[in-house]
């Protein structure tokens, strides 16, 4: 009996050629084209790897499964995404277990997001744009040009370099990890869920901004009450509530509607 998580067609796909990989790097520029708060970069991610998936999955049912999996929540740093693309495409090409692929994807997106922010937004951008701005303030038209050149040589170097590196790493790692796909899938899920637990506390911004005043004493609901019980309690509670609603069969659309109302109410009443 075939498991639900295994691709029907188990023949390994032909390896992707450098030219195909380069094409996918250009597509990765659209990673955030359909950015939204529910899935973040998911549809852009799928767009970026789509020609690769179509090359790999000749079986229509498998292509549908794979596309569905790659429409799940995704968010990482847009410059480093090509590394994940390379690894995932290598795994898809090898027809790995779908749970393992998902686990690896979720486990890599979080850390790379953090690394990318530190490397590009906190280091590369301030340095290059600082040089550009100081020239521009003196009225030198080379300012913007110098900035764009410096920034983008590194930007595109990283994108193209990581694509090839990710794909090669992916192919090699898979060869080594042949033994026991069940165990690897389990290991990937473990890393993935550790990261998701951490991401909820980091990414979901849900705070009460209300100070209860009784005579002389003041009580800040967030810092004096909620944070004392447990930090990031509201993000966790809200996520679990959404999880419970989903299990009850509520559609994600309803949950988005509820969330917008919560935000507007909180703002109107001045408690968030």
């Amino acid at each position: 009996m075939a498991s639900n998580y295994v691709y029907e067609d188990q023949t390994k796909a032909e390896e992707l050629q450098p030219k195909q990989l380069r094409h996918l790097v250009w597509r990765s520029l659209l990673l955030q084209a359909s950015f939204n708060y529910e899935r973040m970069q998911a549809a852009g991610w799928l767009y970026s790897i789509l020609p690769g998936l179509r090359h790999i999955h000749k079986n229509k049912k498998d292509l549908s499964k794979s596309m569905k999996d790659n429409m799940e929540f995704f968010n990482t740093h847009p410059f480093l995404v090509t590394f994940i693309m390379g690894v995932i495409l290598a795994m898809e090409g090898n027809k790995e277990d779908r749970e393992t692929i998902r686990g690896i994807k979720v486990a890599t997106m979080g850390p790379l997001g953090g690394i990318g922010d530190a490397l590009f937004y906190l280091t590369l951008l301030p340095i290059t744009v600082g040089i550009g701005a100081s020239l521009a303030i003196d009225g030198n038209f080379l300012g913007p040009i110098v900035f764009l050149l410096m920034f983008n040589i590194i930007h595109f170097g990283v994108r193209f370099g990581l694509m090839t590196y990710g794909y090669k790493t992916g192919v090699k790692a898979i060869e080594k990890l042949k033994a026991g796909t069940k165990l690897i899938s389990r290991a990937a899920s473990i890393v993935g869920l550790t990261v998701v637990g951490g991401l909820i506390a980091t990414y979901v911004a849900f705070q009460i901004d209300y100070v209860w005043v009784q005579g002389e004493s003041e009580l800040n609901i967030q810092t004096d009450v909620l944070d004392q019980i447990m930090p990031a309690m509201l993000p966790l509670a809200y996520t679990l509530l959404m999880f419970w609603f989903l299990k009850k069969g509520r559609s994600p659309l309803t949950l988005i509607g509820i969330t917008v109302i919560v935000g507007l109410l909180g703002s109107y009443l001045g408690i968030m």
């Binding site: 708060y37 529910e38 968010n75 909820i200 979901v204 911004a205 996520t239 959404m242 935000g263 703002s267």
Partner: peptide, 26 residues
């Protein structure tokens, strides 16, 4: 309050994405 409320909702919204992910992986 409308602009503020929308940005609060935007901050909470990833919870829906994580819930979807948990539904599949947990």
């Amino acid at each position: 309050w409308i602009i503020g409320g929308l940005s609060i909702a935007g901050g909470i919204m990833p919870a829906v994405g994580f819930a979807l992910l948990l539904r599949i992986m947990m």
